[in-house]
Design a protein around this nucleic acid. Sequence first.
DNA 1: CTTAGTACTTACAACGACGTAATTTCTGCA
DNA 2: TGCAGAAATTACGTCGTTGTAAGTACTAAG
Lengths: 160, 160
Amino acid sequence: MEQTNVEMSFSGKKVTEIVGISYRQLDYWTRTELISPSIEKGEGSGSRRRYSYKDLLELRVIKNLIDGGIKVEKIRQIFEFLKDQLSQDVTKVNLVISGNKTVLVKSGDELIDILQKGQGVLNILPLATVKEEIDSAIVELRPVVEKNSSNSQLNTGTGS
Amino acid sequence: MEQTNVEMSFSGKKVTEIVGISYRQLDYWTRTELISPSIEKGEGSGSRRRYSYKDLLELRVIKNLIDGGIKVEKIRQIFEFLKDQLSQDVTKVNLVISGNKTVLVKSGDELIDILQKGQGVLNILPLATVKEEIDSAIVELRPVVEKNSSNSQLNTGTGS
DNA sequence: CTTAGTACTTACAACGACGTAATTTCTGCA
DNA sequence: TGCAGAAATTACGTCGTTGTAAGTACTAAG
């Protein structure tokens, strides 16, 4: 029985480990609404934020863009265009950022087409790798299995 | 007689107009050695910096990268690899930034090749357009022709 | 030589994007 | 119910990248 990652939820701490960012970054991005915890917003000190699998993908895209030297300010623009576009069927799709426009493009002809007319700077990020990165990170970080608590969201597929 | 732009020199002020950046940016980039005025460094208050045509190309590349949302920090890395690579025969060459490596690639097959193996973020900047932008800006900004002073570097070749 | 411009330099401020550390509150468990 | 630990919040500081404004030196004209 393969449990899809889609229904999982993750704490802030866990997210930082999976995605590979600092807690401060996650907190800052959350509080400035670059991303938001889809499962639970968590308001008030001591509350708990819960992020979805889709949030993880989004965050990893952000991380890769940051590592690629893209300004956070620019990333905010990008995600205004990307609203909800980023579902789980991201395999073999490239994120192409041209000027102030952002599109999802299937690798191949379309991409070359865009390159021909290339004005300004073109940023390209393959999303297939993003999904792989997250998925393998989730598996690798599955640590010492906690004593099974009934409402643990990290259900590994033990039935019921 | 076509006067090549190559031998010209430009003041800081002029550079900002041609390239399309603020004086503060030019100054900051100069003083932090992102670029340096090839013709004359200009040391001490009141001295004069003189930039070359090649400097203009370099600065325009920087501007385009900035407009593309690339962090200045990243741009510094890029130019460490690009040292002197940026000559005047930049037509039909693309600047490709992949991770921490930067290369000049002729449009076409090589580019697609790189895209296939695409890891992380790929930044692409066509240099042909950069040269065009600078050249046309130089022409357009040729203002009220100064009374011909013998050492004016801005020889228009009109001949009275 | 003096004066007026222009251009370069310096000083100060501001903002974004975090890091560090202390504080608060929630949760699981005894 | 009370306690320990984990995670979120708040406070404060810093660094890089500029903007604004004031100071300073060079250059040409008289």
